[in-house]
Simulated scan of single mutants.
Amino acid sequence: MSETILVTGASGQLGRLVLNHLLETQKVTPARLVAGSREPTKLSDLAGRGIATRAVDFDKPSELGAAFAGIDTLLVVSTDALGEPGKRLAQHKAAVAAAQKAGVRRIAYTSMPNPEPGNPVLFAGDHYGTEQAIKESGLAYTIFRNGWYQENLLMGLPHAIASGKWFTSAGSGRLAHVAREDIARAIAAALASKPQGNATYTLTGSQAFDTDEIAALASAVTGKPVEVVHLSDEALLEGLKASGLPAPVAALLVSFDANTRAGTISDVTNDVKKLAGIEPRPLRAFLEDNKEALLAG
């Protein structure tokens, strides 16, 4: 087993869940864990459980060496710096370079399915570039290509249920949404185990659905009819902007639908079960558990 594990972005949702599963599910002792964040003051609850905390700011490369000192396995949770093109990739590359210099033995990274050139998602290049930097570093690595979270549906589906219409350009493309909790459980299991060489896992739900099928499930759970309105990317973009979304945000959302339509995120794997030992939560169960939120739109 790895001796010391540092999780970056530990004040965020995924990082905190990974640490929880390392402690509670994998029974890793707190003395082996380090929680990293740009704002360590947000980690007081983790510190109270015996986990060391460190300031980890990818925008301060000169300080990363000290942050990564003595770490055997480093989990780089991809940052949320999407507003400035190129910034996110620069942050990740700084972390990889610092890990290499600090003597980190294994680096893990949260990527996305099929980020290779040609992927329509506007930030896919950040993930692909980071994966390449990790592979070129010479460090042992584990890459987690995380599927789309089930929780992401709560950003737009409640409005679709309230209005009765779901506007999309995803066509008949399919997507296997996966619970954030299941991804965290799988990542924690991999981090806590003895490395078996370099590996890339694609973490998805157990079944892929198209937009019409998701709408039908949501209707069955909530009792509200949802009509799926299929649009072109251009029409969807104009509609989102007309609804008040900033153009960059609207363009990003459209790129998600284009990605689904292209089949680039249609993969269904058993990697969650392979790592965590449990089946991922079915989409219908997620919708049922969040019925109240779905009806609050």
Score class of each variant (00 low, 15 high):
144 F>N: 00
144 F>V: 00
144 F>M: 00
148 W>R: 12
148 W>N: 12
148 W>G: 09
148 W>A: 10
149 Y>E: 05
149 Y>H: 09
149 Y>W: 14
151 E>K: 05
153 L>T: 00
154 L>Q: 12
154 L>A: 09
154 L>S: 10
156 G>V: 04
157 L>V: 04
157 L>A: 05
158 P>E: 06
159 H>K: 15
160 A>F: 06
161 I>S: 02
163 S>V: 10
166 W>E: 05
167 F>K: 14
176 A>M: 10
177 H>R: 08
178 V>W: 05
179 A>R: 14
180 R>M: 14
181 E>T: 13
183 I>N: 10
183 I>Y: 04
184 A>S: 11
187 I>S: 00
187 I>Y: 00
188 A>V: 02
190 A>W: 01
192 A>M: 05
194 K>E: 15
194 K>R: 12
195 P>L: 07
198 N>A: 13
200 T>C: 13
200 T>E: 14
202 T>Y: 03
203 L>M: 07
206 S>Q: 13
207 Q>Y: 03
207 Q>H: 14
209 F>N: 07
209 F>V: 01
210 D>Q: 08
210 D>E: 03
213 E>P: 07
213 E>K: 14
215 A>K: 03
215 A>N: 08
218 A>L: 09
219 S>W: 07
221 V>G: 11
222 T>D: 09
222 T>P: 05
224 K>V: 12
227 E>I: 01
229 V>C: 12
230 H>P: 08
231 L>M: 12
232 S>E: 03
233 D>W: 01
234 E>G: 03
234 E>R: 08
235 A>N: 12
